[in-house]
Design a protein around this nucleic acid. Structure first.
Lengths: 365, 365
DNA sequence: CTGAAAGCGCTTACAG
DNA sequence: CTGAAAGCGCTTACAG
């Protein structure tokens, strides 16, 4: 691809509105109208303009110029604080984006994916250079610097799942309640020895047990809330939370989940129930159990969170907390298109539902 | 989101480079240099400029203006001829995009997703209004009108999988060879009665058996080639291709695959081997067999194409043709960034590999 | 129905 | 090191 430093070189010889106007000896404005306001000129003239355009290879008004002049870009930026590739690898993220894209595409708006990998310098430019009319932000932890760059832009912003403040719109679910419900389900089955598998609690790339202090100071609000929900349920049942082993690792994937499961299963007193803050991790726990010949749910029960498609298809079917991923994406898409009072941005909280399948059962022994 | 018709209203009161220049009684150019060419002014002045910017809430040069002036957008458009949501629902598409995004994000380029659903009017504007430096196009059939709009733009373009011409760069795989290999595998297992499940052969929303005429005139090149590969193998083994039932349906999904399987299994002489042009469809065939209590591979063997992650995780593991989806995406990303002679655009063809798992076995009876 | 004028916000050689 | 000038390509009231 040509990457010239001057636009002269790049656009040299490219026709513009003026090229066509000159040919037909009419004004640039009329040519513009042919494309943008057909009612402003006769059909014949319009057709004549298009004919010349075809002839000289003019593909229509330059999009960048149009956006500048109009003051809007008809594009929404979707910011990921993980590698952009995450948008295409995590099934929950994928489904969320599907919902967003449904709404945007119905309004003929573009969706600009903004990578913002951990790397200080790049961070600002990703946000500051994006030609967008608004932002949808996914997975931004509470103490993230990029938040300030976003606010500097003074564009409508919808945060999804994380980083709930009074300054932006927000879409999320009842993470705490959902987590509580799955823990209560396992308690009802008689389980008393739990193990927990979670992805990032903070952006510091910690992998290993997360002590109670770390849990309490987690900056990824979703996992903070989910752990809180498990703790609520256990303590209500008289089981102290602090001794429960919580393993943290990243990235979210079955492989990571399997790694966490190995550690839990290697313990002197392995848990009879393993709860995961995501289905992707739970898939890995199932795999680890299978590879060790451990029966699920006979020996150990496994539960997840999200209800991704594969949770129903895998064998044994995964007990999990369903969250309306698609609807969450749609809600984010709708919010970014709505007008709202910047002084009190709207908040949408969607419900969760406990889905019981075959991966959980009564405690044995 | 505010959707004003005039940019005055939208940008009213927004600071620009000039606002800062006026405050400091320096020229606009110097303020611009502070952001874009730090070596052109003293560090102190630069800091003073940033200080004023912070004070008045200036987030840096307007991205749209910058793009217009520079003549490049630092954005690559990815065009889907299916609903944009497809980018986030088909696992093969998702993995491909992951590869593309890896490359683009490493170069700090944005990825603009361009929906282009079947709806004549919208088609042109999606392509003509995209402020991008190049296009990556996925799933565009051979006779698509949008192709001409793309060519009108005269931007570097990479076609993926479909629509191979001499006018654009191309990335694909050896579809025919891969298809042949899986058919040969089944023939070696003794199968003689085949059934085939495919997604779209043409964009006309046909669902049902695809006769030989339709197969031969398919405009989706990938499926054309894959069917051709199956036919090659069967005919080489002395099995006439024309009587082999080929069922076409859409969209690509396990549900669709299950629907196709029902029809094949309902036949008077059901096939002992069902080959699918995609894993997503094969997943559905497995589901349909399971729901009918038909043993796989005891009664019927099932094979797919792609080797998506789930193919290895499902039970029984799916025999399939692996294609390097991630690598394909990376190749497309690299090609769009390369400079090449427009007169002879490059072509990349990646290899496939037969992956034998548990879903295929010797023919019984 | 058509066109002259103003201006969107910026970057870049170039002169000093 | 700094600034005046030119111009990227377009849209939109407004006057005729």
């Amino acid at each position: 691809m040509a990457r010239d430093t001057t636009n002269q070189a790049r656009t040299q010889g490219r026709p513009t509105l003026q090229t066509i106007a000159d040919r037909l000896k009419i004004s640039r404005a009329t040519v513009s109208n042919a494309y943008s306001r057909p009612d402003q000129l006769t059909a014949e003239l319009r057709e004549k303009i298009f004919e010349v355009a075809r002839e000289i290879g003019y593909a229509g008004p330059n999009p960048a110029a149009r956006k500048l002049r109009r003051g809007r870009t008809d594009t929404i930026g979707v910011l990921f604080t993980e590698e952009l590739t995450f948008a295409f690898s995590d099934p929950a993220a994928v489904t969320l984006l599907r919902g967003v894209s449904e709404v945007l595409s119905s309004r003929d708006l573009g969706l600009l994916l903004l990578p913002s990998p951990p790397g200080a310098e790049k961070r600002a430019s990703t946000i500051l250079d994006a030609a967008v009319d608004g932002f949808i932000v996914y997975c931004m932890p509470d103490d993230d610097d990029r938040y300030h760059h976003l606010m500097d832009r003074r564009l409508p912003t919808v945060m999804v799942d994380e980083h709930r403040t009074h300054e932006t719109a927000f879409v999320g679910i009842d993470d705490r309640g959902g987590a509580r419900s799955v823990a209560e389900h396992l308690l009802a089955l008689g389980h008393r020895r739990f193990g927990v598998v979670t992805d990032r609690l903070k952006p510091d790339n910690h992998a290993g047990y997360a002590d109670i202090e770390r849990q309490r100071t987690a900056t990824f609000g979703v996992n903070l809330e989910r752990l809180g929900g498990y703790a609520d349920a256990l303590e209500a049942a008289g089981i102290p939370w602090e001794p429960v082993p919580v393993i943290e690792d990243f990235p979210i994937s079955p492989e990571t989940g399997a790694r966490c499961a190995q550690a839990l299963l290697d313990r002197e007193e392995p848990p009879t129930a393993i709860i995961c803050t995501s289905d992707q991790m739970a898939l890995g726990v199932l795999e680890a159990a299978r590879s060790r010949g451990i029966d699920v749910p006979g020996t150990v029960s496994v539960a997840g969170f999200d209800d991704i498609d594969e949770a129903a298809r895998i064998s044994p079917g995964l007990t999990t907390v369903r969250q309306p991923l698609l609807e969450k994406g749609r809600a984010a898409g709708r919010l970014i298109l709505d007008e709202w009072d910047p002084a009190s941005p709207p908040t949408v909280t969607l419900p969760t539902e406990l889905i019981i399948r075959e991966s959980t059962g009564p405690v044995s022994i």
